[in-house]
Amino acid sequence: MSDAASTSVPVIETRALRKVYAEGSEAEVIALQGVDMRVDRGEFVAIMGPSGSGKSTLMNLIGCLDTPTSGTYHCDGVDVSTLDREELAALRRDKIGFVFQGFNLLPRMSAEDNVAMPLGYAQVPPAERSRLAIEALEAVGLGGRTSHRPSELSGGQQQRVAIARALINQPPILLADEPTGALDSKTGEEILALFKRLRDDGHTVILITHDAEVAAHADRTYVMRDGEMHEEGGEA
């Protein structure tokens, strides 16, 4: 596939994506209703909405952590419904980096070891793992903190470690769920600036947030309400 052809394929494309829990029962919950979404390579997109709006359900579907009730999802041109469990795991590993509000770092491991962890699953040799982890930490401004444990790092530094870990496999897509939620506003601004730099480096960043000020940093904003999605005109 030529460069021109590959860039024309959306990194994320959903069509009529629907998710229903306990379908047909009295406890039925329609979490997503016919979501159409297209995100191109190198975009920084925010998905905004209050708790219960469906944005976390959508993130789980985009991250291939759950399957839709109906509709289609193409991730980097691949129809994920055609993949078996092993292929899905490989797609998650190779295509998607996850960043969470709670950092999800292992407390007894150094920053370097936390970042290198995904490479263990990919059976990368230890020396190469170490080199790549240090490079990733340097890329997020933590080259001098490789041997520090999470308890020896500030909240913003821990989130940078988590971002470095998400980037270690060089995935095209970065999914960030409330990544500034546990940080003060100044540190949050620094993390958002880092996401913009990653976008400029060619990563596609999708940010889940309930905060309009955070969403305003993105190139485009989708708003979720009662399982339905609408795009609003936003400025980066």
Rank of each mutant, 00 (worst) to 15 (best):
I96V: 15
I96S: 00
I96M: 13
G97H: 13
V99A: 04
V99K: 08
V99E: 03
Q101R: 06
Q101N: 04
G102S: 15
N104L: 14
N104G: 00
L105F: 02
L106K: 07
R108Q: 12
M109G: 01
M109V: 14
A111R: 05
A111F: 07
E112R: 04
E112T: 06
D113I: 10
N114P: 11
V115E: 12
A116V: 12
L119H: 07
L119C: 04
G120C: 08
G120I: 14
A122H: 04
Q123K: 15
Q123T: 05
V124Q: 06
V124H: 04
P125V: 14
P125I: 15
P125R: 15
P126F: 00
P126W: 11
A127Y: 06
E128H: 07
R129I: 02
S130G: 03
S130T: 15
R131K: 01
L132H: 11
A133N: 09
A133P: 05
I134K: 15
A136D: 04
E138Y: 00
A139Q: 12
A139N: 12
V140S: 11
G141A: 01
G141T: 11
L142N: 02
L142W: 09
G143W: 10
G143S: 08
G143R: 01
G144K: 07
R145E: 09
R145T: 06
T146W: 00
S147K: 05
S147M: 00
H148S: 09
P150D: 01
E152H: 02
E152A: 11
E152W: 05
S154D: 11
S154P: 11
S154T: 13
S154Q: 10
G155F: 11
G155Y: 03
Q157L: 10
Q157V: 01
Q157P: 13
Q158T: 00
Q159K: 15
V161T: 08
A162F: 02
I163P: 14
I163V: 15
A164D: 10
A164L: 03
R165G: 06
R165M: 10
R165K: 10
R165C: 09
A166C: 14
I168Y: 01
I168G: 02
Q170G: 03
P171K: 00
A176Y: 00
E178M: 02
E178T: 09
G181R: 02
A182W: 02
A182G: 00
A182I: 02
A182H: 08
A182N: 14
L183G: 06
T187G: 09
G188T: 08
G188M: 00
G188C: 04
E190M: 14
E190C: 05
I191A: 05
L192T: 03
L192C: 03
A193G: 14
A193C: 11
L194A: 05
L194T: 06
F195Q: 10
R197C: 08
L198A: 05
L198I: 05
D201I: 08
H203W: 09
H203Q: 08
H203N: 09
T204Q: 07
T204L: 06
T204H: 01
I206M: 12
I206Y: 00
I206Q: 06
L207A: 08
L207T: 12
I208V: 13
I208E: 02
T209Y: 05
D211N: 15
A212C: 07
A212Y: 13
V214F: 02
A215C: 03
A216C: 03
A216G: 11
H217D: 12
H217R: 15
A218F: 10
D219M: 07
R220F: 04
R220I: 07
R220L: 11
T221I: 15
T221K: 13
